[in-house]
Design a protein around this nucleic acid. Structure first.
Lengths: 140, 140
DNA sequence: CATAATCCCTAGTATTACGCTAGGGATTAT
DNA sequence: ATAATCCCTAGCGTAATACTAGGGATTATG
């Protein structure tokens, strides 16, 4: 049940962008340094986020990345879904996938995994980047 | 966020044992056939479950496995924890582990993963094998 | 008592996914 | 013109996954 570094690093980068929402655009190099992540690896992750419409980019010198919407309009659920794919804990409860198990109808354990999927999804969709920034500022 | 086959197959085997709770002991061969799983692989999984105290075994001819407690006393949470380890989606929120991140105190995304861990745990701990059997019987 | 059925244990192994690195091209501010 | 940036793709070492194989220990049964 582990998340890969894609989701982890990607969320870190998005939180970084949310914190500096008004300073945009922010070069990837800066994010990578601040978050202590490999720049070229992060490049791949942010490309995914861009294709998912969660960040915008500006090319060339003085370019960089910025959130495509305000932090309260972007949820952790969207970010993780973009980077990790479905939140389904096993393939047979993944709606994005075409692969289906022929025993789906009378598979008993399936009920459990649907519940896990839905509860995780509901939780992550309920948390926005703005929420995280708020909580973080309280801690200071 | 995928579960490995350990958790998947292991839960299937446990549900099978729960369904046949009174017929015990059940040889692994029978479970493997009924659940369409590789017997020798399942052997390793059930060894883990036995060491976790969730099943008992009887050796020799006519031997087999049985649940160590009644199905309403065993939760999916216990089973998955035994087979997959902590439900922590990332290492830094895994209480079973000694590995700790020095940035734990001011890591913002950590808040999210603690919530995921706790919500999944609560959900899985709330579902017993008896609950699953009940739901399955309703479907028939 | 011999045999077959079962649990028990360990080692090995092919495949896959993960977590990157590398290198070069396209764009744009200065 | 140059440097700073985004953009794209290919490759690659490591570790984990999902098994398979083989043999030993125990015990019911005929």
């Amino acid at each position: 049940m582990k998340l890969s570094t894609k989701g982890r690093y990607g969320l870190k980068a998005m939180i970084d962008l949310a914190f500096h929402y008004k300073d945009s655009p922010i070069p990837l190099k800066v994010i990578a340094e601040r978050q202590q992540l490999s720049e070229s690896y992060l490049e791949q992750l942010i490309a995914t986020l861009r294709k998912a419409g969660l960040v915008n980019s500006i090319r060339g010198a003085q370019g960089g990345y910025m959130l495509s919407k305000s932090p309260d309009k972007i949820t952790v659920g969207e970010i993780i879904h973009a980077l990790e794919g479905s939140l389904a804990p096993i393939e047979c409860v993944n709606e994005d996938s075409k692969v289906s198990c022929e025993k789906v109808e009378n598979c008993v354990s399936r009920i459990v995994w649907i519940k896990v999927r839905d509860s995780t999804r509901a939780l992550l969709n309920s948390i926005s980047l703005a929420d995280i920034c708020k909580e973080a500022k309280l801690k200071e």
